[in-house]
Amino acid sequence: MTNYGLVIDQERCIGCQTCAMTCKQENNVPMGQFWNRVLTVGGEHVDTPSGTYPEDGESGDLDMNYQPTACQHCENAPCVKVCPVNATYTRDDGIVEIDYDKCMGCRYCMAACPYNARVFNWDEPEHRPEDGTGDVAERPQGVVEKCTFCSHRVEDGLDPACVVNCPADARIFGDLDDDDSTVSKYISEYNTEQLLNEKGTDPSTYYVQGKMTPGRPWTSDKLETELGDDEAAQATRRRNGAPTSEHGPTPHVPAETAGGDD
């Protein structure tokens, strides 16, 4: 079985908001909405610390961190449980997705989600540019929407947009059920935390804290779809952690994709 998961290295994250922007572009997210947010842990505002500025020789206690937050794709997802019409469901590959035809806009899921990952289209969605962007159809007024792990990309063997476009290489995507996958290796090798672990939601998103990881491998300017078709060689590189492939970035999704089958 495939069970997709994401590792985010908070020691690498520089708070640049590229993941928030590229998500908006890739997924045609309407104005006023974000599926992917970079929260500031520290002061009241974005990019401000807690503590006070050191004066007169004080050591100071300023402290600030970034918390990139989108749908955590929980294995025990409260949003799936509360949906009265089964619009929110967990796919066989672990991705939590919404059937927008079924969603009736009751927003129970938004109340149930402890990560504030979901947004509701109160009005007719507006886009900039007006015709929308990316490869995903616009969602209508009156439904809830959220991060899909870019399932449309994953089904084509591509990593999610936020993973590919993170300039700090802080995001690693892959199959949690495969012990040899890069995500699994990261989770076993580094200190990772799940957000609000005490809620029992068992998120498929893991945050690296403490020691910085080597980051997502990115060794070529080739697109993933332009990689050589030597699947065996690629699989070997993937098993080896694949950081130094001269043929380009290794897609972290398995060659055989498991699409939504609900």
């Binding site: 908001q17 928030a20 309407p30 104005m31 006023g32 909405q33 974000f34 947010r37 970079v38 929260l39 500031t40 009241e44 505002h45 974005v46 937050t69 947004v119 009005d123 507006e126």
Partner: peptide, 13 residues
């Protein structure tokens, strides 16, 4: 803002 929303939706201020 045509959405009546604020940058809060993005985690900003």
């Amino acid at each position: 803002n045509p959405r009546g929303s604020t940058p809060d939706s993005a985690g900003g201020e």
